[in-house]
Write a protein that binds this DNA or RNA. Structure first.
Lengths: 199, 199, 199, 199
DNA sequence: ACCCACGGGACATCCCGTTATT
DNA sequence: AATAACGGGATGTCCCGTGGGT
């Protein structure tokens, strides 16, 4: 008693992987109870329905990854290094990502196309946050003179995210991490494009 | 009588859109019968099970798109133009793609992660074909002197596909085609990188 | 094949008793499958949901009873006899009614208080029809001179129905048909009140 | 400490309305906890199970109504007036009765047909008590010379109760209190029949 | 070649009751 | 005396697949 939050968090953490691995729809409550060691009654005591749990699970898995990346990024001082570290983090986490069932954003975005508006909103929010973070680094790079003033931050952020997601999709589908590494290499080229001593 | 093949083809065509729009798992037989105006018995007369139909439906929708792109590409003679046309085709087809439920490769790849090995194989095959086509154009570009001999065709193909898929994901999720256009612009930059008069 | 309507009717007939005996809510689909010898899938092939089946079941059991009563009533020529026969029919059918779980109108009216508007509507319709039938006989009685012109048809119909339903409730609850017979005797008194040679 | 009995009584009072409004089966523990502002544990501390609470709730709501009627009846001295007042009380309480979900006897009698023998017994007891009260007044009426000696008390009591319950059912179902008023008028006519100066 | 009727099983949800914890 | 967390089970619904029949 009073251990509610603990159990709740444990449910979210374990459910997040199951959801991400199997997709929102294919994940049945029975799969969750099996993975959780709890009965359906117990789960429904903590979450209103499957949807609510899915939303929290996505938020959790996304934030965990988000913070891990940020931790890597902030190790570097200069914006240019930060961008490279940002991209590199996805290679670093690749195995773990595959183990967890792939990129949550990618999975949820295609899974929650129309039927699950709440999940869809969470994904949009995640993407927006991601884009914002990249833009901020680019702007910082311009301010400290590392990046060209005419560099298109929005263009960069879009290609960055697209390459990451596309690269993860390719690598996971084909089963060859080289595809992700090539996409990261592509990001490196784009970064070079924005460097001030490039022109 | 050829009537059978006709019906079969009609089933595939209509089912392809339903499958792609709703995901290969969420699509129920009732959805299909409703969209097809046929009963389940009729469908099961032509396909062994839902999975087999799904495979054929994916093949169909992919080939249709594939051929449409090829038709655009072959309008141009020079490899460089062909690459640009290739990328541009996705912008051109964007509305139609969204209407049909998004990119079949993207959808199916995330949808059929582990549970549907046959579908998974089809997606891999599609991706391989796509990669091969891009490589061939790049090689042709090298041969005719448009592209630098040291251009990395595999790297280009990977980033090309990643940018397309990632761009489509972003655009569809956010609901703003600009994201796709930015990804295409990124491909354009990459192509410039490979041009012979670039260095 | 083609035996759909047959099965459907059989489901309705058997379900009507189960519903009436146990009440709409307590009647579970499992109870129905048990009583019907059919699986849930089979039932849901014929009816959209439990509610739709309940509505049809009520209609059936009500019409069956309705027609049986009418058959008794029309045996008599003169309105006064018809009224007496009308009331007497309920005594005649009492055993059967109890066996079937009581009066469907009474059961459904209290069961479908607010939660099941469609059933509620059916009950209201049944009551209205019943009232109309009684009024028609009373009017006929006035026309042929058996009943006093100042007899209040609406008052009579209301007390008639109330006495029947109340009498059935009492008899069934206490487990003594005498209570119904007394209520019928009460109706007899009211009929005497309306006779032309009464004043 | 008397706190326990206080809580217990409060539970019964509030639960009685919820039970009567929703039926004794459709009422879920969640409905009760919501209406009570207590948790299930608290309820189960005072009552063995849902059934036991239902029984007490019925007793309570019935006694409350019973006493209110008696209070009205005893305002009059003469048995004949008492009978009229008895019947009239139901019209007087009609709005309140509807608000509380209808007549508890009527509801519970049909609701607790076979499955809840304890509730069923309570209803029978209530009906018997009601009948006894009516009989007593009739006998008193005979003794004081207001009612004919050959008046059939049992017949009167039966029709009285039947008309009340039937009238309530009709009025509540159709949503028109006129039906109850007509039933009460019927009772009035019956009373006239028993008057000593009637013959 | 197609449809109709049906089976059996899984789904998410919600239920009532109890035990460990104050 | 009251709570919070949880178990086990039942609910209505819907699913995919299949034979009997036309």
């Amino acid at each position: 008693v009073g251990r509610a939050e603990e159990t709740r968090q444990s449910i979210i953490e374990k459910a997040a992987v199951v959801f991400n691995r199997n997709g929102y729809q294919r994940t049945s409550m029975s799969m969750l109870t099996e993975a959780l060691g709890l009965t359906k009654g117990a789960i429904y005591g903590h979450f209103q329905d499957k949807d609510a749990l899915a939303v929290e699970a996505f938020r959790h898995i996304w934030q965990r990854r988000s913070e891990a990346i940020r931790a890597i990024v902030v190790r570097h001082e200069r914006p240019l290094d930060r961008l490279r570290a940002f991209a590199g983090a996805f290679v670093e986490f690749y195995e773990e990502t595959v183990q967890d069932g792939g990129c949550p954003v990618l999975n949820t975005a295609t899974d929650a196309d129309d039927a699950h508006p709440r999940l869809h909103r969470e994904v949009r929010r995640a993407l927006a946050e991601w884009e914002r973070a990249l833009l901020a680094i680019v702007e910082a790079g311009k301010d400290c003179g590392e990046l060209r003033r005419d560099a298109d931050g929005k263009l960069f952020a879009s290609t960055f995210i697209a390459l990451i997601e596309g690269g993860l999709l390719l690598a996971k589908t084909v089963g060859d991490r080289t595809y992700l590494e090539r996409a990261i290499a592509g990001i490196g080229m784009f970064i070079e494009h924005m460097r001030v001593d490039d022109g």
